[in-house]
Design a protein around this nucleic acid. Sequence first.
DNA 1: GGATTATTGTATCCCTGCATACTGTATTAA
DNA 2: TTAATACAGTATGCAGGGATACAATAATCC
Lengths: 157, 157
Amino acid sequence: MDDDHSDAQTAKGKAARIARQSSALYAIHEVSRLISVVYDDYVAEHGLTRARWWTLMHVGENEGASQTSIAAMLGTGRAAAGRQISKMEALGLIERRSDPNDSRVRTVYLTAKGRELLEPMEHAGYVLFAKFFRGFEEAEEKTLVQFLDRLKANAAE
Amino acid sequence: MDDDHSDAQTAKGKAARIARQSSALYAIHEVSRLISVVYDDYVAEHGLTRARWWTLMHVGENEGASQTSIAAMLGTGRAAAGRQISKMEALGLIERRSDPNDSRVRTVYLTAKGRELLEPMEHAGYVLFAKFFRGFEEAEEKTLVQFLDRLKANAAE
DNA sequence: GGATTATTGTATCCCTGCATACTGTATTAA
DNA sequence: TTAATACAGTATGCAGGGATACAATAATCC
């Protein structure tokens, strides 16, 4: 299918592909940082950050879940999730309770204060998503999600 | 184009789209972390990390550049780049020299030891890229790069 | 039951990046 | 020439996450 009418062409094509893959992976890194900065800017007035916002959402949708399961939902390790939960508990947004069935487990709930943030955060989300995906067609967004899922799967082997 | 034969349908579609955008942005965050972990794993034997590897590459291709310009290439702030360069100087991979024309500037060069890493790192790159992009067609990779560029541009407003 | 194994949450230390403030040094304006 | 301004690099403190080791508690397997 490629017009590989010469070895040089093919070699050049390979090099170009590698360069593209390389820059794609780095671009993901950059975009991730950019997302973080823009998010944080938007939600700073509520005393949140991107990571805390995500934690808030997941806890809100899974009240009573253990920290480990929250970590799994966030795709992070237990330590990272635990730290985040600690900080948000200190901010009065989250409440930890002990599980009567398993004293190792600490279940997590939103406080009233935390719950009050859900709606404004959701609204901030709309604005943010619109900003990032300006000019994107729905089909393109779906394709992007698929690409990311495939990358994730490949990374996990 | 959409089969919006009811308001509920449309509302549901909007919600779905927002959910998709949301998860896409989070997926970028996750994939970025995964890339970091996998990279670090691959290059750990050479005493490097993903960030250091990128720094090494950029310095190697732009010897004599100032730290600020390296930071610009990396897309990070001067502080982050400077720290990275300091660490790599401590590792003996990079050498800082003072610019005779501007004593504020510190130009950056690879040491022999740093240069020796270029090739193994390049090879590690091939393996890594192949791992991440397994199953990807070239056209898809190009599309992904375009998506990321657009996200980057949108983030920057 | 008792010993081994697995799991939960935490603490510690590392890497990475942002923001800000600060020190020099150039550059520019007056 | 002097004063104001801009810029390079650094230091510090913050946020976020990974890896590992640990204590306490379950769960399992003799």
